[in-house]
């Protein structure tokens, strides 16, 4: 449904999107994941026909976004990152304008507007002026305008940002429902959103795609590598050497002191990555045989967050050696 080939977008000297390529089949919900300024919005704007790419080729439903922009626009519902609505118009007149702009035939207009008003839960506020609504409602008006005329492709740029938790759940459910019979691209930096809503995730940073995998693949990959956190009282380099020699262990990294807290004087903590069966038993036995004090050993769940941070940090060149324990991520 959506094909992007070697698309690049420059803003003067700034390279916003750098030679990206991906493909989204019909009916898939894809999550665009990446830090701010990664190039998510730029890519989405190109697909929505807002501006053409500097170079490269992109099609939506087989139509070229540069040469057949008008027909692409008829097919796409777009929700911009900056919630853009006319604050001086009442909800219904705004949607009326949208329906007319999107070529909804005159006799179907009323019905179509009623449909999106209901779908986005705007019944109570449909006659109020948009500028007087709460942020959550304004956001919904923004989503409602994207839904008018049942577009085959929905491009939603951070649709749940700034909503309260209850509304977030509602909007996600709505996106899930919509995704049942159409292609959806949503961008976000909320990772749980990806796992609840998307079939596939594209991780993007610095204008490049770092990973593009289906959520099932990703889960399988996450389960392949397992992690242990070990805290031991003893000589750090000797402990590290021992751990590295254990069978099936891939990497051993020191945990930053600051992350552990003040009571860990004289001890060293590590993150051990390994594959296959649980090796906690073997590790603890080997450590105790050396006469070191084993203070803590626990299995760490490798989460989407870890994976994402690893990828982004690697691509930023800051990832080497630094590892944040999941506990600290949760605390954030």
């Amino acid at each position: 449904m959506i094909t992007v080939e070697n698309v690049t977008k420059r803003f003067g000297p700034l390279l916003a999107v750098d030679q990206i390529s991906f493909h989204v089949p019909r009916g898939e919900v894809v999550g665009f994941l990446g830090p701010n300024g990664a190039g998510k919005s730029t890519t989405m704007r190109i697909l929505a026909g807002f501006f053409p790419p500097t170079s490269g080729h992109a099609t939506v439903g087989g139509l070229d976004v540069v040469t057949q922009t008008h027909r692409v626009k008829q097919m796409v519902g777009y929700f911009p990152e900056r919630v853009s609505v006319y604050p001086d118009l009442p909800v219904r007149s705004f949607l009326d304008f949208v329906a007319e702009a999107k070529d909804v035939p005159r006799r179907e207009r009323k019905q179509e507007i009623a449909r999106v008003i209901e779908a986005c839960g705007l019944d109570k506020v449909s006659d109020r002026i948009i500028g007087h609504l709460s942020k959550g409602y304004r956001q919904r008006v923004g989503i409602a305008q994207a839904l008018v005329h049942k577009p085959e492709v929905l491009i939603l740029d951070e649709p749940t940002i700034g909503l309260d938790p209850e509304q977030v759940v509602e909007i996600r459910r709505l996106i899930r429902d919509l995704g049942a019979d159409r292609t959806v691209i949503i961008s976000t930096h909320i990772l749980s959103e990806v796992s609840t809503v998307c079939d596939r995730v594209i991780i993007i940073n610095g204008g490049r795609i770092l990973a593009s995998e289906s959520l099932t693949e990703l889960r399988a990959q996450l389960q392949r590598t397992r992690r242990l956190q070990v805290e031991v009282e003893g000589p750090e380099s000797a402990i590290r050497g021992l751990l590295e020699q254990m069978p099936r262990v891939e990497t051993v990294r020191s945990l930053e002191l600051g992350v552990r807290g003040p009571e860990s004087n004289g001890s060293a903590a590590f993150i051990v990555e390994y594959t296959g069966e649980d090796i906690r038993k073997e590790v603890s036995r080997a450590l105790l045989q050396q006469g070191w004090g084993l203070l803590e050993i626990r299995a760490l769940e490798l989460t989407l967050e870890d994976m994402y941070l690893q990828l982004v940090q690697q691509s930023n060149g800051t990832g080497a050696g630094v590892y944040l324990a999941p506990a600290t991520l949760v605390a954030e």
Binding site: G49, K73, V83, K102
Partner: peptide, 14 residues
């Protein structure tokens, strides 16, 4: 300023 130009430019309007 409002960003609504983004809507106009992504609707099927010339």
């Amino acid at each position: 300023k409002l960003g609504t130009i983004e809507l106009l430019w992504t609707y099927p309007l010339k």
